[in-house]
Every structure is written in C-alpha cells, then in structure tokens.
Design a protein around this nucleic acid. Structure first.
Ligand code: MN
Ligand code: MN
Ligand code: MN
Ligand code: MN
Lengths: 221, 221
DNA sequence: ATATATTTTTAGATTTGTCTAAATATTTAT
DNA sequence: ATAAATATTTAGACAAATCTAAAAATATAT
C-alpha cells in the first residue's frame, strides 16, 4: 500500500463519504465539501486517476475504485480510532475530537494504528456512533433508524448522530442525550412534528423534527 | 503563538539541538542534520529570520532567539510526550518511537498535548532519558555523567542514551542495559579502554569505550 | 430547438519547499 | 600575502497544491 499526501487523503476520504449518498460524485459537491475550488478538484481528480484510485471521465463525475475504497477505509480507520482515543482516554468533549482527528489521521505508520487499536481494546464505534473499520477494512453496520421514524413507546438506544456541529452538540447536551442514551418516544405532535421523548429516570424532553432526524437509534433496551 | 509548517518546525528543532553543542550553527551542519542541501537551508534561514525566530547575518551562522527557543521547546515537548506514550502505552520498542514521534510532533493542538501530558501523568523524561519540557517549556536537567567517566565502584543509574540508532539499541538490549538500569563500573582496562560493568543480580558485562561514552548515568542506587 | 444557466475544465499565476550549478565570501595552507 | 580549499549564497528550475478568469461542455427552461 503506497503512501499518499495529506491533501490526497482528504480528497479520497471526502469522495468516499459523498459516494455513499450519490452513485457518482460531482466536482462542485467535492469542492464544497473540502472548502476548495472546482478547478482544484479537477486537478486532483486527474492525479488520483493517474494513481488508479478513481474512475473518472471528464464531465462525467467520479467514484473510488476498489483500491480507492481500500485506501479510504484505512484513513477512516485512523480517523475514528483517534476520535475514540481522544474521547475515551483524553476526555475530550464530543465536539472537539473531529478537528484534531482530522490531523492525526494522516500519520501513516501502520504499526502505530494497529497498536493503538489494541490499546483501545478494538473499539467498534467512534464517539459519534460511526463504525470503525478493522485492520481488514471491515466494519459493523448495525441497522439504525432515525429517532423521527421510531414508533411510539418502543425502547431504543442512541447509536449515531448525523450532524456533529458545535450547535448540535450543545443542544444534545442540554437535552441529556448522548451515544448510548436509552429512550422512547411517547408522543408525536402533528402541528410541528415535534416529539416528546422519555429518557430513563428523567422527565420528558421535547425534540424538534430537525433534531430527531439527525439522531439515529437501534432497537432494544 | 503562531503556527509553523512541518518543515519550519523540523528546522527549528534541529537548530535548537545543534546550538546546544556549538554557540552558533552553520549552514552545512544544519543541512547534514536534516538530510537536505545547504541552499535549502539558506532559503529557510531567510524565512525564519523574517518570522523573527533566529538571529542570522549572511555567512555568520545563526541561532534561535528567545521566541525561537520557545517554539523549539514546544515541538520538543510534543515529540517527547508522544515518545513516552508510544513506549509506555503502546509498548513500542525503544528504537521505534522516534520515527513515529517525528510525525506526531507536528500535530499542533495545544489542548491535545496538555491533555496527553495529563493522561500520561506528567512524565519528566522520555524513553531515551531526555527531559520533557512542561507546559511552560521548563524541564528537569539532572546532572549526568558518561558511563566512561564514572569512577570505579560507585553505584549509578542509567538515565540517558546519546545515540539512538537501531544498532546501538540492539547492543544495549544484548547487554541488558536500559534507562533505569542500576550498575557500577568494576574495572577499566587501559589496553582498549573497555570497562567491566556489574549490573545488579547479573554477571559482569564488558562495555567498549565507544559504547560507554554514549551511556549517561546519574549517581545513586 | 434554441437560448440561457450551470457545471466543469483549461490556461496561466502563486506559494512553499526543494534542487543543481554557478558565483561569492570566508577560511586555511603555503 | 597570496593561492587553494571550503562554506555559503544566489540564480534559476521544478513539483505540489492551490487560486482566478476564461473557455468549453452539459443541463435546463422556454
Ligand atoms: Mn484530514
Ligand atoms: Mn466520528
Ligand atoms: Mn518532525
Ligand atoms: Mn527521545
């Protein structure tokens, strides 16, 4: 497995995430994701094509090929293991881990990552509930459903938060919701689609439609 | 405190180490240390001068000013804390930590380093026995003496290893010597300046002049 | 189907960090 | 003191990653 520059890695990872939503990734979408210019994206796509990491025909969009996905999973593994480390061992807050992991992920020593994985006890999910690829790039993919779609009076556990902005995390903290929180939806109000949610041993809280659609849960107490 | 590029940081750190030995650092010495060309050093020295980190007059050599030393100590702090982490927590071997720390040291989040320091229990020395600067850049500077200069029959403890090549570490391992090893010199042979050294609860080993001059000890059992 | 708008690519420039080869300054030896 | 050797700097080039502005391709609307 070759080594890639920090910049190349950031592009590869972004394509990986974007192509989960859309079959093919566009120049503009990638430019927006990476806070860069379309012209810079085109330049980089030419390079990644030469390095045989993507399928790309001018004007046709692009997507990672098998090798590209393998590389992406390696970067995501590093990112999420560091996030776990920062949160679990260094007691960083939820919202602070991403930015630092964005740098740490580019330290490419394989031994470092595999030993870190071992040290952390082979965690399966990062602090945002995203699955951590193992040494072979495999990850658990638990079925999850948005809190908004959870039926009434069914126990479920928060396992993923889609948006990880400071604003979102502020709000979650205020509502006492985190990964692992057990809850059930008691009522849904048709007027504004807000939910009344009961968390164990707490009084019920109101969750807006927007927030509920960003919280994902799995069934079970 | 501004942020510096990886390349700038590597130059700054190298100057810091070189100016401990010589009053002023030369272009060639720095080029050799960094495995680069003298012309590249001159280019960078101009930049570091503009950024007010060094004293530099063309042809006169250079040295870090107060601000430059402060920056250097920050980089060294990061480097050595990561070395300690790799050795202590991830169980890396002595000889493997430096290369990885050389990359990790450039991740510049202050919070990351201060929390790492806390997590590690505020260690004072890295795995090679080098002192770790604290958050203010201060470090313990225990007086140490080379094993070669240690008087006969005086108990001492290994606290520093000057050379950290794989070859050196191989040899040290074979002789069962590490940071913290307690020993005393029993004899010195004038023919080749070799030493007979007694480590607690072990049979005596022979240490060459070259090796002894790279091992540093402090007095006391 | 044609005009308009949007997206993407190209052309050319810029910054950072590096290099080689040549010029210049300094040091050392005679 | 002069010549030779060594060290340092300058000049000019190059690769990586970015940008702006203009050109070209594609998509959309009438
Ligand atoms: Mn990144
Ligand atoms: Mn995450
Ligand atoms: Mn480094
Ligand atoms: Mn060290």
């Amino acid at each position: 497995m070759l080594n890639y520059s920090t910049s190349e890695e950031n592009y590869i990872k972004a394509i990986f995430h974007l192509q989960e939503a859309n079959e093919t990734v566009s120049t503009n979408a990638l430019a927006q994701e990476l806070l860069t210019r379309p012209a810079s994206v085109t330049d980089m796509m030419k390079k990644l094509k030469t390095k045989k990491l993507i399928h790309y025909q001018p004007y046709q969009g692009f997507r990672l090929n098998t090798e590209g996905k393998k590389v992406a999973l390696g970067i995501i593994r590093r990112h999420r293991l560091w996030e776990f480390f920062l949160s679990e061992k260094l007691k960083f807050e939820w919202g602070e881990v991403h930015e630092v992991a964005e740098e740490l992920e580019h330290v490419s020593s394989k031994k470092l990552i595999d030993k870190l994985d071992e040290f952390l006890g082979y965690p399966k999910f990062d602090p945002h509930g995203d699955p951590i690829p193992d040494v072979h790039g495999r990850m658990e993919d638990h079925e999850r459903i948005s809190l908004f779609d959870l039926p009434l009076n069914v126990y479920a556990e928060v396992c993923h938060v889609a948006n990880q902005s400071t604003e979102m995390l502020d709000l979650l903290k205020h509502k006492s919701i985190a990964i692992g929180t057990k809850l059930e939806v008691k009522r849904k109000f048709d007027f504004d689609n807000s939910l009344e949610v009961k968390i164990r041993q707490q009084s019920p809280v109101t969750i807006s439609e927007q927030l509920a659609k960003n919280i994902f849960v799995k069934y079970g107490s």
